[in-house]
Design a protein around this nucleic acid. Structure first.
Lengths: 348, 348
DNA sequence: GTGAAAGCGCTAACAC
DNA sequence: GTGTTAGCGCTTTCAC
């Protein structure tokens, strides 16, 4: 069998059947724990499988059953960058748990740029997977192209900019942001800075919108220069905070679009000799573990990674079962987790 | 076609062929840019593909061609944890680049625990992918089970503990570590601490071995309590360093098994009021970007993520082509990148 | 409870 | 250049 050093060919169903003295139908039944098979035949088949080292050929199975048993989780960003947010990390882990329990394999597909995104979309619609979850800054123009017309079950995490022809799960970013800023205003803060992440991202624009809404309906200072633009990362947020402090020495609160940026803000504020929350109150977004590691600990707007993952998973499963094909958004609630960087009672 | 609201069935080769008035062979040729096809026929086929929205069925193609066009990169660790090391992040990115250029799709498979590892190994040997790269703390007993007997092309990143029946790529951890410690000794340091990562990991044990080798052949203090055990992370390394400083106030150097832990060591040393490198020299491992962000900047033992990725990729490709099936290690060289936390001229 | 037979959608000889 | 044909390895009716 192995005459000239070649790799031994993989055993097939037929070979197992021959060795077990049954038909390949019976072998198939045993493998799939399907219909009733006599215990005797079952044992013979199991032995033959062991003897031949048989493994099912997934391509063949997928061809006939039209199922691959795999789910793509495409991440439209550099992986290392994506996983710096601990919300993302926890969420992807929860996603894996969700599908693991349902016997589906999660494939993480990194799509850091346009070229790769195209390739991954091709990978998805050519039938390597039964469905896909798209994470990160997904843009409509990229999405709509081939993926939607291919009718593959798809759910996006976070509302894709400008798109309403695809299912997505998101939190009410604008509302969450508005509520947080309102709390700052209620405590008597008047000059409230805002540090935003990249505005190519829908959640960034929504959180910014919420901030503006809260400011608009109040007596707090309304000034475009109170908005610092960063990129979700530490460095850029530190720079933005420094600039804010220079421009507005009377600043008495900062709301940040994520916790990592709030960490930077806290460091810069403390370096400047100001006290938190007495002089400047700080609120972050995501309630990630780093919110516990700052001094003082960070008040943050929370979303549950587990709930988020479950919402994504269930939506996808529904589409995969053909139950519910109309695109629909799922909006998840948030709440503020109060810590020392700002509490409602910290009046100014 | 879409009578009762059902999803429109996907077009097949035959339908395209009928519409284009050619045989399915010709359609196949056009799709695969294969043999010569008359320009006229080619256009008709292309039009028909567009008209029908045809997409190749990967399962069918894989069944007959015995190729999936995908490579698994299994990560035997929590993804978020794995990507905290910037070497890992850069390496995986380089790996993606490597395979992208060769038209192979990289699938990241997170295998944080035994249960998942089993599932992923099954996924691999059932033929979803053409080959696999295993990263993280891979253990022999897990590996050898089914994967090797299934004869799937496999390369491991980092020598798996106790295994020699699988190809792997690694740096010469022991040698690299020994050289770094020898430099410390040569500069006159006598009480050299070592902070190790989890010893379940082969590179951790090798780096520790190199440290011991260097100490053994020298007049530096040989004392088990100079070895601090941490888990590659910041917190545990900070604790280990503090303990080291308490136990050995005369400590004049610390060598850390990775840069993140060296960062922690630096912070603790500076907190204690000691100067780097005057009082205590510090060397890290990996030359990751954080080595540039410490004060002082960190001297570190370097391995190139790109070279590492290329070595993994080429080894795997060789196995996939059937060229080279014998398991063999590839050992990559390292060098010390000198920065301010220690230089050869910083004599004690 | 079991087997025979059809066929999933594609590629790859092999003729013409 | 193009069509015909024979499978790839599996699941799944449908008889028995």
């Amino acid at each position: 069998m192995d005459q000239n050093g070649k790799r031994k060919a993989r055993a097939t169903l037929v070979e197992v059947a021959e060795l077990a003295l049954v038909s390949k139908s019976t072998v198939s039944r045993v493998i799939n724990e399907d219909a009733a098979v006599s215990e005797e035949a079952r044992q013979r088949v199991l032995d033959a499988i062991r003897a031949t080292g048989y493994r099912v050929n997934q391509s063949a199975r997928a061809l006939v059953s039209n199922k691959t048993g795999a789910i793509a989780v495409a991440i439209y960003e550099q992986l290392a960058t994506y996983f710096t947010s601990s919300f993302s990390g926890a969420m992807v882990t929860a996603l894996q748990d969700f599908f693991f329990e349902r016997d589906l394999q999660v494939l993480i597909l990194p799509a850091p740029n346009r070229e790769r995104q195209k390739r991954i979309e091709k990978y998805i619609y050519e039938g390597h997977v039964d469905g896909a979850i798209l994470l990160g800054p997904v843009r409509e123009d990229i999405l709509l192209s081939d993926l939607l017309s291919a009718q593959v079950p798809i759910v996006v995490g976070g509302r894709p900019i400008g798109s309403d022809s695809v299912s997505y799960v998101d939190i009410d970013n604008a509302k969450a942001s508005e509520l947080a800023v309102q709390e700052l205003i209620r405590s008597g803060r008047k000059t409230i800075g805002f540090i935003t992440g990249q505005l190519s991202n829908a959640s960034a624009t929504d959180r910014l919108r919420g901030y503006k809404l809260a400011i608009d309906g109040s007596d707090a200072r309304d000034d475009e220069t109170l908005i610092g633009i960063a990129d979700w990362g530490y460095e850029s947020a530190a720079i933005a905070t420094r600039k804010l402090l220079e421009l507005h020495p009377e600043l008495d609160a900062i709301f940040c679009s994520n916790d990592l940026m709030a960490t930077a803000a806290i460091a810069v504020i403390r370096d400047s000799g100001r006290k938190i929350p007495e002089d400047i109150a700080v609120i972050g977004f995501d309630d990630s573990p780093i919110a516990l590691r700052t001094t003082p600990q960070l008040t943050s707007v929370a979303q549950s990674p587990e709930d988020y993952a479950r919402a994504l998973g269930e939506n996808l499963l529904k589409q995969m079962s053909g139950e519910d094909l109309s695109p629909k958004p799922v909006i998840l609630p948030t709440q503020i987790v109060w810590r020392d960087s700002f509490k409602p009672e910290n009046h100014k």
